[in-house]
């Protein structure tokens, strides 16, 4: 009697567990489709990944609100393909595995979120780097390349913040008024073609309003901090955004090889320069794997640039609709 009562009214733990498991299934399902369909074009990959990312934000709350009968015992027994509560029967140290899974997944989600939040929090209090006047040679190079790249991408030339330091720096920043930050170290390391390609890549981020999107994504990640699959898909989406900027930048400058070469040079110059801060627990142990992941990301981006522009698959909209529909139908029976 007690069990029936607790099961029929889904508790917060049931809903949390369902949201975590649904997002996990959605992200794996979408990843399997991306690989099986051979989706290489970044926009198409992002559209499919957004299906998995949007699932816990839109479809799952709708499922819980519109179909409360899914939580009833009859549904669990007769129709459900999976009932997370069934893991309660397997016990470890006197506690059902349902609770162990829930705690482990929530902790993993929070850990992944904090790993990306930590650098943002560390940077908060620090003043934005003050721009300096570039030396005449640097000013001439930037004055020649920046307007050309901006015109090729169809964006207004953003304000430039020049840093005189030797460390290579190149990124766009700012939500409402994006600016481009570039250092003397970047200009000295890249040749003219590589610089044009790298600037085009950054301007592609500006054109796509990526700084704004990344903050929106960070906000959603904060809401879903307990959901590990959401954190992982968000990271994958950010990687796709980089690939998209690569494609748009390469198309704008017309030299994929120069962009790959520039990426490698900047990566080599910065490898090890911005390690994980030692104040973090296990920082030393984490530093090497993180550096390897970063190197792998750069390698993949270079390979993609050398392979040529990826082809768009036909019926992109239909694929996204099919993926979303199939997911919704499948996960209706997962509680």
């Amino acid at each position: 009697m007690r069990r029936r009562g607790t099961v029929e009214s889904a508790s917060w733990a049931d809903i949390l567990a369902q949201a975590i498991f649904h997002t996990l299934v959605a992200s794996l399902f979408v990843e399997a489709l991306v690989r099986s369909w051979g989706v290489r074009e970044p926009r198409q990959r992002m559209a499919l990944r957004l299906t998995a990312l949007g699932y816990p934000l839109v479809l799952f709350p709708a499922l819980v609100a519109l179909f409360p009968s899914r939580g009833e015992e009859g549904f669990r027994e007769d129709l459900a393909l999976f009932d997370a509560r069934s893991w309660e029967t397997v016990r470890l140290l006197g506690v059902g595995l349902f609770w162990w899974w829930l705690a482990a997944f929530a902790a993993a989600g929070a850990g992944l979120f904090l790993m990306d939040l930590w650098p943002v929090l560390r940077g908060r209090g620090r003043r934005a780097p003050a721009g300096e006047l570039p030396d005449p040679a640097s000013a001439a190079v930037l004055a020649a390349e920046l307007p050309r790249a901006a015109a090729a991408l169809g964006v207004r030339e953003p304000p430039l913040v020049f840093l005189g330091r030797d460390l290579p720096v190149l990124f766009c920043t700012g939500v409402r008024r994006p600016a481009l930050v570039v250092s003397g170290g970047t200009l000295s390391r890249l040749d003219r073609d590589e610089l044009a390609a790298a600037l085009a890549h950054e301007l592609a981020h500006v054109a796509g309003r990526d700084p704004l999107k990344s903050w929106v994504l960070m906000g959603l990640r904060a809401v879903m901090f307990w959901n590990p699959a959401f954190q992982v898909v968000s990271r994958a989406l950010a990687r796709d955004a980089e690939w998209l900027a690569d494609e748009r930048g390469a198309a704008a400058c017309g030299d994929r090889l120069a962009l790959a070469s520039g990426l490698l040079k900047l990566h080599r110059a910065t490898a090890g320069a911005s390690g994980v801060p030692r104040s973090l627990p296990f920082a030393a142990a984490l530093a090497e794997p993180l550096a390897r992941v970063r190197s792998h990301d750069i390698e993949v981006r270079c390979r993609r640039l050398l392979d040529g522009a990826p082809a768009r698959l036909p019926y992109a909209g239909v694929r996204v609709a099919l993926a979303g529909g199939a997911l919704a139908a499948l996960l209706f029976f997962v509680i």
Binding site: F29, A32, L33, S36, W37, V318, L322, A323, A326, L330
Partner: peptide
């Protein structure tokens, strides 16, 4: 496309 979707599903 449909066969791939079916086997992934």
């Amino acid at each position: 496309m449909l066969v791939t979707l079916a086997y992934v599903l």
